[in-house]
Design a protein around this nucleic acid. Structure first.
Lengths: 248, 248
DNA sequence: TCACCTTGGTGAACGTCGTTTACTTATCTA
DNA sequence: TAGATAAGTAAACGACGTTCACCAAGGTGA
């Protein structure tokens, strides 16, 4: 077994970010832990991610995980960040200009969100279900930025819609909401007038409600397949935005 | 096999329902257990209800609780049933004919649902949050009837509205939904044409979405008080039903 | 080359949890 | 008054998250 001597040492004196060997294997271990944790998430739900079981699958013991994550909650929080990122990728792909006109892009984004949620119920539950005592997305930390990216995927679409041809908005909104709405828009990084933000939030509430009820099974006893209900709901949502006719 | 308390022995030779002394004290103990469990629910959330802690508060030891409930999950399920009942009481009171015309009764019911949910976030989470592995409302058992009563509180209101003066409905709905919608209506015990049921479901999705996002704090970072947002959302909902002008 | 320090791992232990078992005591019944 | 039944306890089991003391490598500077 001959070792190729060409890449053993890094001679770059001025290097700043190239990872050392230790850092590489450590990053790989972190990735393995999160991959295994996600498998347990899929198999047993958010409450079924157990440090001892994850370590067992990796051929390690539980205390070793504490070299990589501060606690059980920290591992979950890290997973939450990854999932927000993955979901943001999905939405951004569906919202890309290459997907057609604005109608098709918005409809496609809504469908992509439902598709991901229905296909990944455990992941969806971790992100959007009951808050878990220590796993909230705190104002700082990487999870916050990743969650923000997800919100921005939808928000940017609305901002573009508003810029191209404004959708109908309520004439006057509660002045108590003005500052809150602007804060919220700033929070997810979009700039829209308050009335338009209210419409955006209303759309998100309807989308969130429809998907959550389907994934949580609060409607499943009688509606084995909730897709027609979702399509009906999202069609009404599009109509309220003045996007009545499908174009794609 | 959930044991409904105090049904093991039937010594009453003549009478049918007069409880013996043992049955009374047993029923009282069951009530005490559930009361204490709810206090822990309020204080520590759904995941914070621990048998040992509940027993400790009652001056008992944990195994004693197994004389009254089959398991931790059974206690939670029983609590779920009680909460559905309590919530049904609240909605029914707000939907009573004495509360004004149909507009006022529907608006009041929606507000009552939000009020109860915001005032009892832990209870709301237990009922409408992420499903807990063994605590689902199974098709039979007392919890199902109680959950059905809650659904019926809203459903009956829609049925009455439809009877008095039909609200606008979509012209044609997906035929794949027809049977599902009728099944669903039968499930919660109302009789409406499929298109009207679709409108009812859509309203419930919006209401559920708005309240869930507020209670779970998915909107709280920037919207300290989400009531204006809720009012805006429910106003749009009423308008879609043709109930534009407040009358009360 | 050798000593040293850092990193990543282990095994044992702590306290808590839900749950089961065997046993005891109180209460109701015949 | 004797026996059945209901309701409680103490002890134990296995699993959990977490901490601690310890150890064995890998990288580093004299």
């Amino acid at each position: 077994m001959t070792i190729t001597p060409s890449t053993l040492t890094e001679p770059s004196a001025a290097g700043q970010a190239l990872p050392t060997r230790r850092e590489r294997v450590r990053a790989q271990t972190v990735e393995d832990i999160k991959t295994t944790a996600r498998q347990h998430l899929v198999a047993h739900g958010p409450t079924g991610i157990q440090l001892r079981a994850v370590a067992r699958d990796l051929g390690m013991t539980a205390p070793a995980l504490y070299r990589y994550f501060d606690s059980h909650e920290a591992l979950l929080a890290s997973l939450v960040g990854d999932l927000y990122s993955e979901l943001a990728d999905v939405i951004e792909a569906a919202a890309a200009p290459s997907q057609g006109d604005l109608h098709a892009r918005l409809l496609g984004s809504a469908r992509a969100f439902r598709r991901w949620s229905v296909d990944h119920p455990a992941e969806f539950t971790l992100l959007f279900g009951s808050p878990i005592p220590g796993v909230g997305v705190d104002e700082d930390g990487p999870e916050h930025a990743q969650a923000r990216r997800f919100g921005q995927a939808f928000g940017a679409l609305f901002a573009e819609m508003w810029e191209r041809e404004p959708f109908p908005v309520p004439e006057h909104i509660d002045p108590a909401m003005h500052a809150h709405l602007l804060d919220y828009a700033d929070h997810i990084g979009i700039t829209l007038p308050p009335a338009a933000i209210a419409v955006f939030l209303s759309c998100w509430v309807r989308l969130y409600g429809a998907v959550t009820m389907e994934v949580f099974g609060h409607v499943s006893f009688a509606l084995a397949d909730a897709e027609p209900l979702f399509e009906h709901e999202v069609a009404g949502l599009m109509a309220s935005l003045g996007l009545g006719s499908p174009t794609a």
